[in-house]
């Protein structure tokens, strides 16, 4: 390495070598470099510090930085592995890896469980599901009577909470999603297959010689 320090490494705290990131994930080196193009664009949209803050994440998701959204906040918190309030490039690639079509089903199920376990108790509790349901209704400007919400919760817990202790543990969740595979659709992003075509400029900015695709 000597004293050479890449431009990316200097400008992007948490930047990691694409070859190393590719070896830890389902992404090829080219795909990691294409993701870096996306990362650069998102991380410079509000504050050009080489990191993605929550406002930038919201802006990228909704094209609106002021929009508050429980689910987007939750995803951000799970991407922010180091809990620093910002997502660095290494975290970004490893988190998106879970959404890769080739990522393991177990990892996807595990991530979805943590996503819905809002308080991080190791269980998806009824009050958490209710909170998410109400947030969804507000987001979509739908109105449902309290009674209807309770009926939906009753139905959900009668199906998912097999031991009927009022909360869904990880084993119950695994069983529930195996019976409801459509719930895992959001855990796969087909876009990730075409990432090098979406961000072809990675070729001009590559710091890796002889990219293996």
């Amino acid at each position: 390495m000597g004293c050479f320090q890449s431009k990316a490494r200097r400008q992007f705290p948490g930047y990691e070598d694409p070859v190393s990131l590719a070896s830890q994930t389902a992404f090829s080196v080219s795909e990691v470099e294409a993701l870096f193009e996306l990362f650069k664009s998102i991380s410079s949209s509000v504050v050009d510090d080489g990191l993605i803050n929550k406002e930038e994440f919201h802006l990228a998701l909704f094209k609106n930085r002021k929009r508050e959204n429980l689910f987007a906040n939750r995803i951000f918190d799970l991407f922010d592995v180091k809990q620093k309030g910002v997502i660095d490039f290494g975290d970004f690639v490893r988190a998106l890896n879970v959404f890769h079509p080739n990522a393991s089903h177990e990892d996807k199920v595990d991530f979805s469980f943590r996503l819905y376990d809002l308080d991080g108790t190791g269980f998806i509790e009824r009050k958490e599901v209710k909170q998410m349901l109400i947030a969804l209704l507000c987001e979509s400007e739908m109105r449902l009577a309290d009674e209807t919400i309770e009926i939906i919760l009753d139905k959900t817990f009668s199906e998912a909470d097999v031991n009927q202790d009022g909360k869904i543990d990880k084993l119950e969740w695994q069983d529930f999603v195996s019976r409801n595979p459509s719930l895992m659709k959001i855990m796969t992003l087909p876009y990730l297959r075409d990432i090098t075509t979406t961000f072809p400029s990675f070729v001009f900015n590559s710091e890796v010689e002889d990219i293996a695709t």
């Binding site: 996306l38 998102i42 990228a60 998701l61 909704f62 094209k63 959204n69 429980l70 689910f71 987007a72 906040n73 939750r74 995803i75 998106l96 959404f99 996503l115 819905y116 599901v129 998410m132 349901l133 947030a135 969804l136 987001e139 979509s140 739908m142 449902l144 209807t148 009926i151 939906i152 919760l153 139905k155 959900t156 199906e159 998912a160 529930f176 409801n180 459509s182 719930l183 659709k185 959001i186 992003l189 876009y191 990432i195 979406t198």
Partner: peptide, 25 residues
């Protein structure tokens, strides 16, 4: 009918869970 769906089917339709928009330029 929403009442016939389980809560997670509804929740998974949230825009905030659709990361696909990250890839739209």
């Amino acid at each position: 009918k929403p009442s016939l769906m389980n809560a997670f089917e509804l929740i998974s339709t949230s825009q905030g869970l659709n990361l696909g928009t990250l890839f739209e330029k």
